Simulated scan of single mutants.
Amino acid sequence: MSSFDLLVDAFGRIQEEVHGAVEGLTEDQLTYRVEARANTIAWLVWHLTRIQDDHIADVAGTDQVWVAGGWAERFDLPFGVAATGFGHTDKDVALVRVPADLLLGYHDAVHDATIRYVRTLTDEELPRIVDESWDPPVSLGVRLVSVVNDDMQHAGQAAFVRGIIERA
């Protein structure tokens, strides 16, 4: 199995988890909060998708799907177009209120762009330094694993909230 195969599988698992957490839920369910300061499924999925979009576009040298695909306009959120959710307050979390099909449409578009990029990679490219602002500097391989890790954690959180909703 190649690095390419591993990455395709990992990003595919994220997509499966996102669909499992979101499909069939209403906007009220997607914005349900376990407690007053908790993240919602809608925010978690938007955020994990924004991070994947931002980070993959950066290493691929492409435009973010969020802007290039017109998703920012469709979501019509009261944040700057570069917002990814980092630093969001409890009030910001509550402002991500969108239907399931919009969340999944954006996630699927980012997934497709991610897989297109990953398919171009060779193992020899993975050590390339993509971010020198960290010590040690971040390689392409580390950045991709970081995205997978962050996304899967947030997808798991969204699945957990869905479980609470379904058992209520």
Rank of each mutant, 00 (worst) to 15 (best):
S2K: 11
L6S: 14
L6R: 10
L7Y: 15
L7R: 07
V8M: 14
D9W: 14
R13S: 13
I14P: 00
V18H: 02
V18S: 02
G20H: 06
A21R: 10
A21V: 06
A21G: 07
T26I: 05
E27G: 00
Q29H: 14
L30D: 05
T31N: 15
T31M: 02
Y32F: 15
R33C: 11
R33L: 01
E35F: 15
T40V: 09
I41H: 07
W43N: 06
V45M: 12
V45N: 04
H47F: 05
R50G: 06
D53L: 08
D53W: 00
I56C: 04
A57Q: 01
A57S: 15
T62M: 01
D63E: 15
V65R: 03
V65Q: 07
G70R: 10
R74T: 09
R74W: 05
L77W: 11
P78T: 09
P78C: 07
F79T: 04
V81W: 04
V81F: 02
A82Y: 03
A82S: 14
A82K: 13
F86Y: 08
G87C: 07
H88C: 02
L95H: 05
V96S: 02
V98M: 12
L102C: 05
L102W: 00
L102H: 00
Y106P: 03
A109M: 01
V110Y: 07
D112S: 11
A113G: 04
A113W: 03
V118M: 09
V118P: 03
T120E: 09
L121T: 14
L121A: 06
D123F: 02
R128L: 13
R128P: 11
V130H: 03
S133H: 13
P136G: 12
P136R: 07
P136W: 08
S139Y: 04
V142N: 07
R143V: 06
V147A: 04
N149I: 01
Q153K: 11
Q153H: 10
H154E: 09
A155S: 08
G156V: 09
G156D: 02
A158P: 05
V161G: 01
R162Q: 02
G163F: 02
